[in-house]
Amino acid sequence: MTPAPYEIRGHTADVRLYASGKTREELFSHMIAGMGSIMQPALYEPRAEELAVRRELVVDGPDITVLLVDFLNEALYLSQMHREVYRFANFLALTDTHLEAELLGQEVDMFEADIKAATYHEAQVTQNKEGYFECTVIFDI
């Protein structure tokens, strides 16, 4: 069975986001889409060509999990600075310790949820037996 691209799951005080992907790039992009949907749910699933906002970022980390969390935190910063929500990410480079990405998104007037940060608490990028990459990240709300 194909796992959901992303799924928002319960946490007593915060928000737990699960995401998966056939590749690491897809996992990272689904995480961005999931975080975007927490910040401002999309009224419909926009196609990449409909997203006018583009932001580039480069992140380095000691391993793939820390890289993912740091990537989300950097995207969160850009989101809040520019009042934008990102729905996709394209990758020029993605290794276990380095990424260069382009975020695609939309401008927003306000956010529905105030995400303080993506945390490392339960985060662990793993590969399931079907070969999908998976991770769960808790966001402090």
Partner: peptide, 8 residues
């Protein structure tokens, strides 16, 4: 102290 998630 919370006992229920925001989503719930």
């Amino acid at each position: 102290g919370r006992v229920m998630s925001r989503t719930k």
